[in-house]
Structure formats: structure tokens, C-alpha cells
């Protein structure tokens, strides 16, 4: 039984018939780690945003369903939808430097949801915040709770954001390229931390990335997107042994090898791109008719 179940989701650029997501279907099991890969502009982040109800104003959902824990979010009134998302899902954002409110201390930024949405009392929420900061290996959690974001390093802030995401025990976490903005040296630690927390809490994780290397290490399944269209959805083991779709094969071939950094990068061949575009055009033809 999948915890997140997306069916035939289409998102258009507001005011046009141009689709940004072209009938995406996707399942994430209750404790599963699903990698969402594709080039920039493929719509991978957009899926995460649609699930969390934070699509930009310029994007509009026109068809499909997003079921979270068996409830179709798109049929709920806005208020209730927000509440359900706040209780059951959480986001680990891309850029830790901009994702914390500069005018507020760390503590309320973690505890607000516990108090306002889950109805905990302040003292309990505070204890929980200190606990969860300890879990993400932050020394002196008490001091960090009183700090303002500008007093913490980038890696530290990302730890805080991970803690904040897990604090309310959500059943689904969307991680939107959570290490892209970080130093290479910190990236590894943060990745390790996210999967350590995921394993401990048994959360479903939708991991948006363009790094197939990371996907091969930690995801159980992955979905490859091109132009807002699902190219392939596969078990990670099977995918890396023999990707089924030509685009997936090309993408895999284009991934830089850490073992031989001097090797030339292989671009995705024109023919493969042309084929992927054809698939997109066919999907649009069917949709518009």
C-alpha cells in the first residue's frame, strides 16, 4: 500500500495550455525511499511542491489526484488540505541559508508546528525540539534553540531544517535537492544524516535530485522524468544493471564517475533527446485531443 499515490497529475503554466507536468503517476510506499531524477526543468521539484501545496502562482494543477495516506488532497478545501499536509508531510528545503526566518530564533521555528498544528503544550514541544536537535548530532541543542539563524553555519542550519522536518513525526518527507547549496565536504554528512533519520523514523521519503550516484546508494526505487513526463520507473538495483528506457541509459552514461574524474563527460545523445521530445509531443497530442 503506497503512502503517497499520485495519478495522472497535470500542471499547466497559468493562463496557457502549456503543461509543466504531463500526467505524472507515482507511488511512494510507507517506508520507501523514492528517487526523483531528471535534468533541470524536468519537473522533479514541481512534483514535490504540488504534493506540499506550495506550487508557485504561475503553476496550476488541472487534472489528476494526489493521495496522501488514502486522502485525495486536491478534493479537500484549502484549509483542511493545509492542515493534513502540515500533519503528515514535511519538506527539507534546498537552500538552508534562506529557508530559516532571519528574524526568529530557532526554537519557535521548530516548535510552532507542534504547538499550533498538533496541539502540544509549549514545554513538551521545547523538550522535543532539544531532543530532535540532539538526534541530528547538534552539540549543545539548548544553545542552538536560543540562537538566530545568522549565528549558525550552513551545514548547521541544514541540520536544524532536517530536525524541524522530522520533529512532528511526519509520514512523508519531501527532500528537494537538500545538498545542492552546501559545501561538498558537508554534502556527504547531510545525506548520511537524512537517511539515518529516515531509517530511524521509518518515514516515506521522496528524494528529488539530479545526482544518480546518490540515488544508487540510498533509494529503493526511482522515477526518471523528462519534460514533465515519466520516462521510466524502476527498482534501483534493476535500473542500474539495465535501464529500460534509452533516455535513462543516456542519463546514466552522462553521470560523472567519481572513480575517474579526468574522463570526458558524455552528453545525452541528440537522437535520445529527440526521442524523449517525441514522447512528450505524443503525450500532449493525446491530452489536447
Amino acid at each position: 500500500m503506497s503512502y503517497l499515490r499520485i495519478r495522472d497529475l497535470s500542471v499547466v503554466l497559468r493562463g496557457t495550455r502549456h503543461r509543466l507536468l504531463r500526467g505524472v503517476s507515482l507511488d511512494v510506499g510507507a517506508t520507501e525511499v523514492m528517487g526523483l531524477v531528471g535534468e533541470s526543468g524536468a519537473g522533479k521539484s514541481m512534483i514535490g511542491k504540488a504534493v506540499l501545496g506550495i506550487l508557485p502562482r504561475s503553476a496550476k494543477i488541472v487534472s489528476g489526484s494526489i493521495e496522501l495516506d488514502g486522502v485525495d488532497l486536491l478534493t479537500l478545501p484549502p484549509r483542511q488540505r493545509r492542515h493534513v499536509i502540515g500533519q503528515k508531510a514535511a519538506l527539507i528545503p534546498q537552500d538552508p541559508l534562506t529557508a530559516l526566518n532571519p528574524a526568529r530564533r530557532i526554537e519557535p521555528q521548530i516548535t510552532d508546528r507542534l504547538v499550533d498544528i498538533l496541539g502540544w503544550d509549549r514545554a513538551r514541544a521545547r523538550t522535543r525540539a532539544a531532543e530532535i536537535l540532539h538526534d541530528v548530532h547538534i552539540p549543545q541543542p539548548e544553545r542552538v534553540l536560543r540562537a538566530y539563524p545568522h549565528e549558525l553555519s550552513g551545514g548547521m542550519r541544514q541540520r536544524v531544517l532536517i530536525a524541524s522536518a522530522f520533529a512532528a513525526e511526519p509520514r512523508l518527507i519531501v527532500a528537494d535537492e537538500p545538498t545542492t547549496a552546501l559545501d561538498v565536504t558537508v554534502q556527504k554528512q547531510i545525506l548520511k544524516l537524512i537517511f539515518e533519520m529516515q531509517a530511524r523514523h521509518g518515514t516515506a521519503l521522496l528524494f528529488v535530485t539530479h545526482d544518480l550516484g546518490v540515488v544508487s546508494k540510498i533509494c529503493q526505487r526511482l522515477t526518471v522524468l523528462y519534460g514533465g513526463l515519466v520516462m521510466e520507473e524502476a527498482e534501483v538495483g534493476a535500473f542500474f544493471d539495465a535501464p529500460a528506457h534509452p533516455y535513462s541509459r543516456a542519463l546514466l552514461a552522462a553521470t560523472p564517475r567519481h572513480t575517474d574524474p579526468t574522463a570526458d563527460l558524455t552528453p545525452v545523445p541528440e537522437a535520445v533527446i529527440a526521442e524523449a521530445r517525441r514522447a512528450v509531443a505524443e503525450a500532449d497530442l493525446r491530452w489536447h485531443s
Binding site: P93, R113, D116
Partner: peptide, 16 residues
């Protein structure tokens, strides 16, 4: 800004 978007995912109303 990102921190406002993040706050939205936490279940708050627009006014909040």
C-alpha cells in the same frame, strides 16, 4: 522567500 514557503508546508493559514 524560502522560509515563508517552508512555513506554508507546516499547515498554517495565509494570515498566520
Amino acid at each position: 522567500l524560502d522560509y515563508v514557503t517552508l512555513a506554508r508546508t507546516k499547515g498554517y493559514s495565509e494570515n498566520h
